[in-house]
Amino acid sequence: MAKKVPLQITLNGEERAEFVESGSTLLTALRDRFDDTSPKGGCNQGTCGACTVIIDGELRLACLTLAEMCDGASVQTTSGMAKGGVLHPLQRAFMEGFAAQCGFCTPGMIMAAKALLDRVPNPSRDEVIEALAGNICRCTGYEPIINAVLEAARANSHNAA
């Protein structure tokens, strides 16, 4: 057995600590130790985007990130976006816009979209497409996903106004 190392992270705003296997990925740590199964293992080699999370404000692939390198970091996942039972505008837009079919890519897509909107609150359609181009969806053909991100941006700016 590989040795265990302590890992302290702020997961969706909550301080958490677990012992994880040295050398394991953040994806494994989140799913198996922190019981957050919203990041999915699609390819486990950094090519599909299903495991996308936000680490200290930056978009990252959890399957290519060593867990122990995240010690002290703030990690955001899709499971932490709804606050008090109220969906985040992105989640609402995805849900209402039929942007998920099988739903397996959805948590990663929402993370990629959130990282974009955090940086660019009112993106153009091309900026949305660019931001999602690292995430594979095999079901929808992307159209409703792109529209959902644009809709969420509109809803955000409406709320801010």
Binding site: D36, P39, T78, L87, L90, E96, A100, G103, T106, I110
Partner: peptide, 11 residues
Amino acid sequence: RHDSAHKHVTG
């Protein structure tokens, strides 16, 4: 809408 849509988007 898809019967699982609200679960898809929350993970």
